[in-house]
Amino acid sequence: MDKAMAALAEMEALGFRPNSASYAALIEGLGSVGRTLEADAIFQEMICFGLKPKVWLFNVLLRGFLRKGLLGLAVRVLVVMDELGVWRNRETFEILLDYYVNAGRLEDTWSIINEMKRKGFRLNSFVYSKVIGLYRDNGMWKKAIGIVEEIREMGLSLDRQIYNSIIDTFAKYGELVEALEVFEKMQQEGIRPDIMTWNSLIRWHCKAGDISKALELFTEMQEQGFYPDPKIFMTIISVLGEQGKWDVIKRNFENMKYKGHKKSEGLQPSATMFCILANAYAQQGFCEQTVKVLQLMEPEGIEPNLIMLNVLINAFGIAGRHMEALSIYQHIKESGISPDLVTYSTLMKAFIRARKFDKVPEIYKEMESAGCTPDRKARQILQTALMALQQRHYHNGFT
């Protein structure tokens, strides 16, 4: 885009102007990389030279402005559309609808829907799923479900998008039995659940404390060929970790690992997934299990990254094994990896737990020498160590 803008400047310096297609390409390109204000400037120049953009170009600008919350510029785009006699198409309305729903603006949402009806646009599953979501997020879940009746009365079949909205609405407000009933009906009608369907059911069952059903759905999802979203995996691990069910965590992770080659949708096993599992063990100070997760990464061809090694330092630190934590730190440096702020802070905390207060200032100095700027937490750790050393010296002097 920089080269394109430079070419435009050179072109205009020579007294030439781009044609309509070139202007459109520039605006679309700038919009795609978030340079909306530059896109707007090119758009204004295009209008100034008497060129009339197509409706799709207006939509590009409209989407870009609303994505950044620039409502004033978005409204101006709509005004220019009206002035130039460019009719709004379905995409224009859906862009506006999506914005108003996400902003929780119920009145404006219905205003757009009514305008769509007046213009002769039939309401589709996208529109209805957005309305259901808006009611759901505003606590009006019964009204959200009432929309389903309106859909049926209009003879519009329920598709996956609408089903997902209904399931999420029921589940969010604790109506898990109804959510599962809709889930079953969805499948009976030949509509295959997608990753969003599974994620919604698992997440809300976890939040309701029904971890057994969440795990059942988690397993069924994998059997259906979906790999779990990391956030969902982390939610399950967190709940199981709180309950101390580490054997269940390990068993589910092993099942995921062995089924990974069958997955066709969702995210594949990655360093992030291993880090989530390792961190669950590390938070409990289970060093051996954390190391085993590290070992599991090797057969998968995944190299342990800095995040994983930081987790390992934390595991040893929580367990009070500061020498092992220090050895991991040495390994990081010997491997040519640059320790980050988390590395230094985690290691200093390990020394604090082991009451090796004199080691903390040494690591702090190494952090500064490496060009890593200490944050407030790191400074607090140092202060804690210095105060402990001061008290120790005072006590020794007194005795």
Rank of each mutant, 00 (worst) to 15 (best):
residue 318 I to Y: 06
residue 344 Y to N: 10
residue 7 A to N: 14
residue 180 L to S: 05
residue 365 K to H: 09
residue 228 P to H: 05
residue 144 A to Q: 09
residue 349 K to W: 04
residue 361 P to M: 02
residue 298 E to D: 04
residue 159 D to T: 06
residue 328 I to N: 01
residue 282 A to E: 02
residue 294 L to D: 01
residue 208 A to I: 04
residue 118 R to Y: 10
residue 193 P to A: 08
residue 399 T to C: 03
residue 338 S to G: 07
residue 125 S to I: 07
residue 8 L to T: 01
residue 89 N to Q: 05
residue 223 E to H: 10
residue 260 G to H: 10
residue 336 G to R: 02
residue 47 I to G: 02
residue 46 M to D: 00
residue 313 I to G: 03
residue 60 V to K: 14
residue 144 A to N: 10
residue 21 A to W: 08
residue 28 E to K: 14
residue 377 K to T: 09
residue 318 I to E: 02
residue 256 M to R: 00
residue 165 S to N: 07
residue 325 A to V: 07
residue 343 T to N: 03
residue 202 I to C: 08
residue 28 E to D: 11
residue 177 V to R: 15
residue 195 I to W: 03
residue 337 I to S: 06
residue 92 T to V: 07
residue 387 M to S: 14
residue 49 F to M: 06
residue 216 E to F: 04
residue 26 L to W: 08
residue 182 V to P: 00
residue 10 E to L: 15
residue 398 F to S: 15
residue 89 N to E: 05
residue 379 R to T: 03
residue 242 E to A: 13
residue 289 Q to T: 00
residue 207 K to V: 00
residue 202 I to A: 04
residue 273 M to C: 04
residue 241 G to W: 04
residue 136 R to E: 10
residue 219 T to C: 11
residue 223 E to D: 10
residue 162 I to N: 09
residue 171 A to P: 09
residue 340 D to A: 09
residue 272 T to W: 06
residue 7 A to G: 08
residue 251 R to E: 14
residue 251 R to W: 00
residue 203 R to W: 06
residue 119 K to N: 10
residue 245 K to R: 15
residue 201 L to Y: 11
residue 24 A to R: 03
residue 115 E to V: 03
residue 293 V to W: 01
residue 345 S to M: 02
residue 362 E to H: 05
residue 22 S to D: 14
residue 12 E to Y: 02
residue 26 L to V: 08
residue 250 K to S: 11
residue 398 F to M: 15
residue 106 L to D: 06
residue 334 E to G: 01
residue 248 V to R: 11
residue 112 I to F: 01
residue 371 G to T: 09
residue 212 S to M: 12
residue 182 V to M: 13
residue 255 N to E: 14
residue 251 R to L: 07
residue 322 H to F: 09
residue 61 L to C: 05
residue 127 V to G: 04
residue 183 F to Q: 06
residue 137 D to V: 02
residue 399 T to L: 14
residue 78 L to Y: 05
residue 317 G to D: 01
residue 44 Q to C: 09
residue 355 R to D: 13
residue 65 F to P: 00
residue 377 K to Q: 11
residue 131 V to W: 06
residue 132 I to G: 02
residue 226 F to E: 03
residue 283 Q to N: 14
residue 46 M to F: 03
residue 350 A to P: 07
residue 347 L to P: 08
residue 304 P to L: 02
residue 306 L to M: 04
residue 20 S to A: 15
residue 179 A to Y: 03
residue 86 V to F: 00
residue 67 R to Q: 11
residue 61 L to G: 06
residue 195 I to K: 12
residue 3 K to L: 13
residue 361 P to H: 06
residue 125 S to G: 05
residue 174 G to Y: 11
residue 393 H to Q: 15
residue 254 E to P: 01
residue 303 E to L: 13
residue 96 L to W: 04
residue 347 L to V: 07
residue 385 A to D: 05
residue 344 Y to D: 09
residue 27 I to W: 02
residue 60 V to C: 11
residue 13 A to M: 13
residue 224 Q to C: 12
residue 24 A to F: 00
residue 315 A to W: 01
residue 386 L to C: 11
residue 49 F to S: 11
residue 241 G to D: 09
residue 164 N to I: 07
residue 338 S to L: 13
residue 241 G to C: 05
residue 251 R to A: 14
residue 62 L to M: 08
residue 61 L to S: 09
residue 10 E to Y: 10
residue 379 R to A: 08
residue 373 T to E: 14
residue 100 Y to A: 00
residue 62 L to A: 07
residue 388 A to N: 15
residue 244 G to W: 06
residue 66 L to Y: 06
residue 344 Y to Q: 08
residue 177 V to Y: 12
residue 149 E to D: 15
residue 135 Y to L: 04
residue 219 T to L: 12
residue 238 S to H: 12
